[in-house]
């Protein structure tokens, strides 16, 4: 019975969703086929969405699915299929040279160590429990989270919000310009290639 003592529903959800996240993340890295990797990414995103739901961040969970799983990964898959790079790759070949994998491993471990250190320094443990409503900046339980989010986005953090959207527009315009430039490169005169007027009729 001692085993089941600390087993709250929150903990069960947390562990299950966390496991889905981790398995998905490993799948992204270890799958040789890029389409399988993208699908593993979707599993991770779903796990994160469930974790958001468990914390009563309903809106964030929905956005996680709509934007990340529904738009971004679909775009990944679309590009994979369109370019025809959807075949399995040989992962034993180190494309970027010998030290790349070691460096990537060190950086990854460092990034993993940061949240673990933060968790250890607060003396807390990850249980998936909801934050107490008595906390100083606890969310108001009487209004839906989407109303609170909207209010802070469009009042307190309006400037940051608008700047972010401007940044996104710049990124889109930049992407379009870059994509067009590739097309222009076709027009560069290549002395070795006969132009249409020189070509024998």
């Amino acid at each position: 019975m001692n085993l089941l003592e600390g087993l709250t529903p929150e903990l069960v959800v947390f562990v299950l969703a966390g496991a889905v996240c981790i398995v998905g993340a490993l799948g992204v890295v270890l799958n040789a086929n890029p389409v399988h990797a993208a699908l593993s990414l979707v599993a991770t995103l779903f796990g994160v969405a469930v974790l958001f739901l468990a914390q009563e961040a309903n809106f964030l969970a929905a956005v996680q699915i709509i934007v990340y799983a529904g738009a971004i990964v679909v775009l990944f898959l679309f590009v994979l299929m369109l370019l025809g790079v959807d075949r399995a790759e040989d992962l034993s070949i180190d494309a970027l040279g010998r030290g790349q994998r070691v460096a990537a491993g060190i950086v990854g471990l460092g990034i993993l160590a940061l949240p673990l250190l933060a968790l250890a320094s607060t003396g807390g443990e990850a249980t998936g429990a909801r934050p107490p409503t008595t906390a100083p900046n606890a969310i108001d339980k009487t209004t839906p989270d989407i109303n609170q989010l909207g209010e802070s986005l469009f009042t307190t953090y309006l400037l940051a919000f608008e700047l972010t959207s401007v940044l996104l527009v710049i990124a889109v315009v930049g992407a379009v310009v870059l994509a067009r430039k590739v097309k222009r490169a076709d027009y560069v005169e290549d002395p070795l290639v006969p132009t249409v007027s020189e070509a024998p009729r």
């Binding site: 809106f59 929905a62 699915i65 709509i66 799983a69 529904g70 679909v74 839906p144």
Partner: peptide
């Protein structure tokens, strides 16, 4: 509380 968003999410997953 996110009813309509759930509908949109499902239609985006259906892809």
């Amino acid at each position: 509380p996110i009813g309509v968003l759930l509908i949109l999410a499902c239609s985006s997953i259906a892809v």
